[in-house]
Write a protein that binds this DNA or RNA. Structure first.
Lengths: 321, 321
DNA sequence: CAGGCAAATTGACTTTTGTCAGCGGCCGTG
DNA sequence: CACGGCCGCTGACAAAAGTCAATTTGCCTG
């Protein structure tokens, strides 16, 4: 991607301002344009990722609790969003997750992205970056639902923010028969996408609940009654559109067999698996995901962190006795 | 390195301001401090690398000339600083080099740094970063000279800017006898440092001239007359305090044998070797360095770029004829 | 525990930056 | 070639950020 001539001036302004530390009026003088234009160009530079402003997320890993969770669950890194000592507590987890995500991405990476409200919220607050040789791939099939957090939207939005290539997935998440799903999985286009998943360097997803509030129910992939039945059969959470049991293994059910999504083994083959959980109701699903080794890097809020730790301690005690 | 409690507030302020996009007065309100303090903390955050602001250097690689030089000399990447269409043309190369350097550094890297005016100028304008697991190692022995750009100063300053570990080199650059140099090289402390050089992921250096203006002459390691003699014997440039011939090989001379510095083979073992050249007089030395494969990434100004290209074309023509 | 010193904090002021309505040029169209 | 719509630029004003002297706080010492 060659720089368009129009971007040249944006780049120059950004360079003089941010790299050389000139003031806007000096930049304006230098480039023979008005200062107002400089201000505009600078905004554009920030929105394009020509200029990158990032904040260290160390504060949130430095928590003692984060260390304890890392140890208890064998994770590589944990970030804990403190509870509401600031204006918009709901935004804290996504904002933190977005920063963490950008910290984990490297040039040339291939990134798998699933879907859900949380993932979309992260995309929405993510800073712009200029990672042209990065590829963002969709981890699971699509839903026709009119929600903004559809798999393709999540992938596209993140790709847009990073200035990266977005690789979409042109198949429905769930089909009506197992046979059709199998056939579709064998289609070259789909097969290629699915087999490319294990080559990712980084994955981003949340976990879903297995109740009437679940996205797969809200999007019409399953009825609330069907979901209830699955829960009685051991369903504990949803990852990349698929239902897992309490141990984090794929639940043996028709729904999963009709699903076109990333194989759990492929997910586990991705070295960095960033899981972000926000809602308190997602405690059990998260435990399932952790048990199944679907997570190496975790972002949660303080309340969830506490529950995780309490759970780990309780489990240890019962083991010891 | 645990975060000191004093840094906590700096971090929080930076987080609210840069990650959440609050205004300074809102941050002040949130943290129950005055806005003036917030402004101060934010400055501190930038100076500590808690907040990172970086500008893409694409503009400077996108030049057609840069591509041509890459091809002509087989380099991985070339950046060209445009000539003085801006206030401080002398600062352009160091500022660009500093940005490029920061773009090339990755977490966990080991970085070799040589010395010289150019290297120090780069360190001096380098943005602050928070790369705690990075190690900066000094590539060559020290000089007692009262210049700011001594090897240890260069290493230390860069380490300070990156918040990295600085590994200094406690030996003189040149000794009076070859025997002593050899003995010193065999000292465990020194040997360890020297053998660690090839493990670097990135090296930063410039090349020096072989005249009375050379740093090794100005610092008293060689007299102007000795340097003259060496030039007649084929000396073409100075890299990490050592003298190389026109082909970029170590010149066979007493000075080099008395020198404690990075073995050229070790330098070549470093995957990314960033060479930065500013002064026009360094054309021949640069050619020598390029010929010796001592450079993979190059930052020069437009005038130097032109000379390099002209030289390459001339060489090609004479080859063809 | 008083005194003194340095560092941190703040209120008030100045400088710099963000914004937006309005102006002017450019291009496609009738 | 005139017209209208659109885009990008600018001037002027409002908002936000930077700065600094004065003051407070915390801390060490005698």
């Amino acid at each position: 991607m060659a720089i368009r001539p129009a971007d040249q001036i944006v780049h120059k302004a950004a360079w003089l301002y941010y790299a050389h530390g000139l003031r806007q009026d000096q930049v304006a003088q230098q480039l023979n344009i008005s200062r107002a234009s400089v201000a505009m160009y600078l905004r554009k530079a920030r929105e394009t990722g020509i200029v990158n402003i990032s904040t260290s997320t160390q504060l949130f890993t430095d928590d003692l609790m984060a260390r304890e969770i890392e140890d208890a669950f064998g994770l590589d890194a944990v970030w804990i969003a403190p509870h509401g000592d600031h204006v918009d507590p709901a935004a804290e987890v996504p904002v933190l997750a977005a920063s963490v995500f950008l910290e984990l991405v490297k040039k040339g990476d291939r990134i798998g992205v699933a879907w859900g409200q949380t993932v979309y919220a992260i995309a929405d607050v993510m800073a712009y970056a200029d990672l042209q040789d990065v590829t963002v791939v969709q981890l699971c099939g699509n839903l026709g639902a009119p929600f903004a957090y559809r798999p393709d939207q999540c992938t596209m939005e993140i790709a847009r923010r990073l200035n990266a290539k977005g690789l979409n997935f042109y198949a429905p998440l769930v089909l009506s028969t197992e046979e059709l799903a199998q056939q579709l999985r064998n289609e070259p286009v789909i097969r290629e996408q699915l087999s490319g998943i294990s080559d990712c360097d980084l994955a981003l997803y949340s976990v879903g609940t297995v109740d009437a509030e679940s996205h797969v129910v809200k999007c019409g992939a399953l009825t609330a009654a069907e979901m209830d039945a699955l829960r009685r059969d051991g369903a504990a959470g949803v990852v990349a559109g698929q239902i897992i049991d309490g141990k984090g293994a794929l639940l043996d059910c028709s729904y999963n067999r009709r699903c076109i999504s990333a194989d759990l083994a492929s997910l586990r083959a991705i070295p960095k698996r960033l899981v972000v959980v926000q809602e308190p109701t997602k405690f059990e699903p998260l435990l399932a995901g952790l048990a199944g080794g679907l997570c190496t890097h975790l972002v949660v809020n303080a309340a969830m962190a506490k529950r995780l730790l309490d759970h780990a301690k309780a489990t240890n005690r019962s083991k010891a006795s």
